[in-house]
Design a protein around this nucleic acid. Structure first.
Lengths: 103, 103
DNA sequence: GTATAATATAATTATACGCTTATATAAGTG
DNA sequence: CACTTATATAAGCGTATAATTATATTATAC
């Protein structure tokens, strides 16, 4: 495990985007399909799809396909889940999105 | 504090670089001057200076000038220090650098 | 089968990033 | 003062990033 730090930096980098961090904060509560996530953001469908792809590429989330829907969930089996969990512990809630109850 | 998440993403983004994360891991142990940090990395002096600038811009580190040296330290008074501390808790040690004792 | 809904991929574009070299600034030394 | 050391800033460059629009894929419904 020569360069753990490099992987950790990659994880932080992928979390270091407003949209992806918000997606992770949402998935922390429960799974969502891509279409549901789309509703939270003022952004095109491909944009969300590409963010999900990056999170999946690092193994931070998993995808479950049921019928025509792709459901995403936090990958608790990830090697980096402890770090992800710790980070998400600081992301109180998603306040700047339609579904939010904060303010 | 409408969009805490955006600031947190910015913090994670700045930590999401191998060099900056290593710098933070070093500063976790003790303060260093810029010249000492330079020795750890196979990189130009301006490159390190610019990384330090980014860390300082977000308030993650502080700078103390003594004589001709600029000493840097983790800013424990930062609003984001709890997040930073938690993240650095996962960065065991800096293994890919000259001064490292791991492997 | 066609039509529609959900999702992914491809191509493009503008901007941000991380590095370099060159130069500037500031402090200590003789 | 000139000279060196430590550090920062400026300019330039190649690459990465995050978005867009357009198109492809996949599954369900009729």
């Amino acid at each position: 495990m020569a360069n753990e730090l490099e992987y950790q930096a990659a994880v932080l980098k992928v979390l270091g985007d407003k949209t992806r961090l918000a997606i992770m904060a949402l998935l922390k509560e429960r799974e969502y399909c891509a279409c549901d996530l789309l509703d939270f953001f003022d952004m095109s469908q491909p944009a969300i799809s590409q963010h999900l792809k990056k999170l999946k590429a690092l193994g931070l989330i998993t995808e479950t396909r049921r019928a025509q829907w792709a459901y995403y969930q936090i990958n608790e089996a990830s090697e980096h889940y402890p770090l992800v969990k710790a980070v998400l512990g600081f992301v109180a809630y998603v306040c700047d999105l339609p579904g939010s109850t904060c303010d």
